[in-house]
């Protein structure tokens, strides 16, 4: 399959200006550091990692919601990072996003009908009012809301319903890619499955590609065809779902997978869990060499001095570890 969207050596930096007693010099936080991947039509690429690993910044960098410091995002033969703002705006018809907090990402003063219609007004200004209304109603119905609800405001809806509205807003311009940034993390368990299934259905019907960002490995396994694991802004491992969850090669991936509680009382956690000690280092002052080395059970001196390259453990399966052959 050919790539729909290609990301090459993308870096997203935030600069913290100097000021106050504790910061004499300006600092640069490298939220995303040299990340490359391809997103293919009709597939879901799951991006996993813990707090501060840069997964949300990656999603925003890809969509140019924050300006990347370096790298390229190739979309239909153009580099989004080099396009002027007007041209990027036109691309947004095809590149959409859904956020974690469904209520705060919806304008409280707009009815949900207006919210869902807005992308049509921007991207298809010639569309007649009646047609627009018909498309909004059809889309509301498609995401499981009644079209009569169109005149209500976001605060009248539950979290799960608000997330359906966000999905309707993202889908109405018939995009080719949606970045889903923790779309089910704030929802109750019984609602999470509803939203996951809705996204899977929409993908089956429309062939849309999803960049699915989440800290929840169970959900990423359910949603994704391929997986990308990040730690302190860098890619640790990437591969197909079966290979990755069946035989993870990076010690961080192994720890991450074994730390997920499994809903089976006959599998006691002590026996299967590879518990990592210590805390995530500050992203302002990441370790030298391999960023994971301070918590890695396999770390050796070379890990302190050299950043491991992404080695191809198998076709399509990359591992950034000096000792991947021993894992």
């Amino acid at each position: 399959m050919t790539a729909l969207l290609t990301v090459e050596h993308l870096s997203v930096h935030y600069s913290l200006p100097a000021g106050g007693l504790f910061r004499r010099r300006p600092l640069t936080l490298k939220a995303v550091d040299d990340v490359s991947f391809e997103l293919r039509a009709g597939e879901t690429l799951g991006v996993v990692g813990e707090t501060g690993c840069g997964k949300s910044s990656l999603g925003k960098g890809v969509l140019q919601l924050v300006k990347p410091a370096a790298g390229r995002v190739l979309w239909e033969g153009q580099d989004l990072c080099a396009l002027p703002a007007e041209a990027i705006k036109r691309c947004r018809k095809d590149l959409q996003i859904i956020f974690q907090d469904p209520l705060s990402s919806l304008n409280p003063r707009m009815t949900i009908g207006e919210i869902v219609a807005e992308p049509l007004e921007v991207h298809y200004p010639a569309l007649a009012r009646d047609d627009r209304r018909r498309r909004v109603d059809a889309m509301l119905e498609r995401v499981g809301l009644r079209p009569e609800m169109r005149n209500r405001y976001p605060n009248e809806f539950s979290g799960g319903q608000c997330q359906r509205i966000s999905i309707a807003r993202a889908m109405i311009s018939e995009p080719k890619v949606i970045v889903c940034d923790e779309p089910v993390s704030s929802l109750d368990v019984s609602i999470q499955a509803q939203i996951c299934n809705l996204l899977r259905d929409l993908q089956r019907d429309t062939g849309i590609a999803l960049l699915f960002i989440s800290h929840d490995l169970s959900i990423v396994r359910y949603m994704s065809h391929r997986v990308l694991v990040m730690y302190l802004g860098r890619v640790m491992e990437t591969g197909g779902r079966e290979e990755f969850f069946g035989a993870p090669r990076h010690p961080y991936s192994q720890a991450l997978i074994s730390a997920v509680p499994v809903p089976d009382p006959d599998r006691p956690p002590a026996e299967r869990s590879l518990v990592l000690d210590g805390e995530l280092p500050s992203p302002l002052d990441p370790p030298s060499g391999c960023v994971f080395r301070t918590r890695c059970p396999l770390a050796v001196p070379v890990c302190i001095t050299q950043m491991p390259p992404l080695s191809e453990a198998a076709p399509g399966h990359g591992v950034a570890c000096h000792r991947w052959q021993e894992t």
């Binding site: 019984s190 999470q192 509803q194 359910y222």
Partner: peptide, 23 residues
Amino acid sequence: LLRSMPSLIIDPGKDLPVIPGQP
């Protein structure tokens, strides 16, 4: 609840049965 929960031991090829509606 047990059926609708994504976990590392489900078959991701099959759709999760969901609990319809809202609390």
